[in-house]
Design a protein around this nucleic acid. Structure first.
Lengths: 190, 190
DNA sequence: GTCTATATTATGATAGAC
DNA sequence: GTCTATCATAATATAGAC
């Protein structure tokens, strides 16, 4: 087994388990079990648990950047791109209802940590979404300042919906509120 | 120092510190420091840390019920009561921007715990707000089912706004989005 | 009821053989 | 690079004197 393979197994397991149980409640013993890599090896690949988290956050950033860029090339109309973004909530509904939003969970948990650099890295994720959404609103004819506000409002609404749907474990609520956000978005199309 | 005094000091310290640092990251040593009560005493008043958390959650439930009931008697118009509710976000803005929403934080953290009864207790808090808000919408002439949906939407929007404002540490964003929610609410008045 | 001292366990992290 | 064994620490929880 190559080095990068073990390293990748750890990252994959951490990404999923940090999401499901939270960062603090996930031990290296847990990750060893999930990944199949003995926990002693972890310190060959990462110098600390915080560094593993930073790596997971970078991996999430790259995933998100990749998805958003691919939409920008494959979907011509900005309003369709925004719909595609909101539709993520329904296509991922099982996980979102069970575990909440991966980004939102990290933002909340890391926002309470003593190390502010971890919170900053989680905020990078949010910034990518907000910056991208603002770009779509600008293409729809909104001024830069208004675009930023609308983007923050869109992310805010998505986060709120997922949080409540997760609290109630209610998939229907999620579906219904996604439709409401889509209707709100439709007001900016014409 | 009476028994109830020590007990109350622990609850007060726990309520605040669980909010600021999260439940899991708050140790009895931390609470001993904050409350001034030696940590050995904690197990005289509470049989476990989980029981202390349950007590804190009950205290929050009582606070919320008290506030909502007092509004129902002191504020005659339901639309004014809903405004009062949303205005909480601005009157508590310093804490909300620094630490997020106390209820939202607990919902997220406890939603990832193995003990589902803790998550249920946190959801009780949410249920109280949602039930109360639904009652206000009903008084405004909405049908019961629509009232429930609007109440969930209101809580969802508030939670989302606080989460994003907290992530960015942005008080202005909070103020602005609160105004937007108030405008949305105003649509149901006439 | 209050406090000190301590047991117990889990975790992040390290040492060193292979 | 991989794996086992182990350290050091911090946390929950308990025992028992006062």
């Amino acid at each position: 087994m190559t080095a990068s393979s073990s390293r990748q197994k750890i990252i994959t397991a951490a990404r999923r388990t940090f999401y499901e149980r939270g960062y603090e409640d996930t031990s290296f013993a847990d990750l060893a079990e999930v990944s199949g890599v003995p926990k002693g090896n972890f310190y060959y690949h990462f110098k600390s648990k915080a560094e593993l988290l930073a790596t997971v956050l970078r991996a999430r950033v790259e995933s998100v950047e990749g998805a958003l860029q691919s939409w920008s090339t494959s979907i011509p109309m900005p309003q369709e791109r925004l719909r595609r973004f909101v539709r993520m909530l329904t296509s991922e509904k099982e996980d979102l209802v069970r575990f909440g939003c991966p980004m939102g969970s990290l933002l909340m948990e890391l926002g309470k940590k003593r190390q502010p650099e971890l919170h900053e890295q989680a905020r990078t994720l949010l910034d990518i979404y907000v910056g991208w959404a603002a770009g779509q609103f600008t293409e729809l004819g909104q001024k830069p300042k208004a675009s930023r506000i609308l983007a923050e409002r869109l992310l805010s609404r998505c986060q709120g919906v997922v949080l409540i749907a997760h609290a109630y474990g209610d998939t229907q609520l999620l579906n219904r509120e996604v439709r409401d956000i889509e209707q709100w978005l439709a007001g900016f199309v014409c």
